[in-house]
Structure formats: C-alpha cells, structure tokens
Amino acid sequence: MEIIRKATPTDTVPRWEVVQEDCVHAEDSQALASSGQVTVTLERWRAEADALKARGQVGLRVLGEVDPGDYADVLPHVDLVCIQFPKFADGRGYSAARLLRERYGFTGTLRALGDVLRDQLNYMARCGFDSFVMAPGKDPRASLSAFEDFSESYQPAADEVLPLWRRASLPGFSLSDFSKVDGNREGAA
C-alpha cells in the first residue's frame, strides 16, 4: 500500500514523500499474523489489550467522530493512530486530530484513512496528521503539491505555534526563523 508521509519528521518545514508500507487493517474477527504492522478497532483493543500489547506493532483505528478522550488511555501503548473519514466532508476527524496532538500529547504517527482527497491534505496536515492513505483511485504522487498551496496561515493549529498576527509582530520576522521559537503550546493533559 502506498502512503504519503513526512520525509523527515523532524524538519521544521516538512517535506512529503510517497512510500510503500504494509499495514493490515484487521477486522475484529480476523486472526492477526504473528508479526507485521496491524491496526485494530477500539473494541478489539478493549477485549484483547494484554495480548496486543505483548504482540507489538499494533495501531488503533477509529472513526473521526469518536471522542479521543474515550481512548486516551490507549495512546501510551500505540505509535500509530488511524482516523477514518467515511466522507471527506465529515469534519469531525480534524477536531479529533488536533485534540490528539494538542491535548493528549500523542506524538506517534497519525494517519488519515478513507475518503482522503488531495484538496483536504493541507488542512489535515495542519490539524496534526502526518500520514495519509489516499482514497481508492487517487494518485498520491500527484497529490503532493497540495502541501505547497499556502506558505502562510493565520491561526495556530497542531503544526503552528503562534497566530500570524503574533509572528508578524516579531522583529526581523521571517517564517524560517520563527519556526524555531519555542512557543506557548498547550501541554499534554
């Protein structure tokens, strides 16, 4: 499966790339192979938490409408959370992503699944997604330019610490300098 991800996760101005990655989004009734990356639903995690922790390489797969508070306790045990967009116009996944990053301090891979289209990638990335599986039939390589549509944004979000009006008032402001400033980020709850 091809995914879009940050080429170098630590870069302040991220570059994006398309890579091949195998990940099985397991149905609840499906037996898990003994190794390899998988994701499971929250229900399965609740039922099999101990076995899944012991296995490792298990990510969580939830719909955007699920309140991240409902699975905050799982986050320390996973390094991949997939948020599913049943329809691209269902905006609940954006709030879920910001809460995961900004309130619950999730630092693992946050991946958008489902009806993921080029013209929403930039907003998704701003909300904290760093990995995407495009909707069937959509070319991930042709979608990479979406991240370059805008070089500025007004409001703070998961990717930006301060609003533009505060950055713009800093002396000698330029975007590249600013991204190094350690801002007033909300801590993990």
Partner: peptide, 10 residues
C-alpha cells in the same frame, strides 16, 4: 482567525 481555519472547513 477563521480564514482557512484547518479544523473548521468541513
């Protein structure tokens, strides 16, 4: 604040 707010476009 609301222009291209990434969380509130949908």
């Amino acid at each position: 604040w609301s222009t291209f707010h990434p969380e509130f476009a949908y």
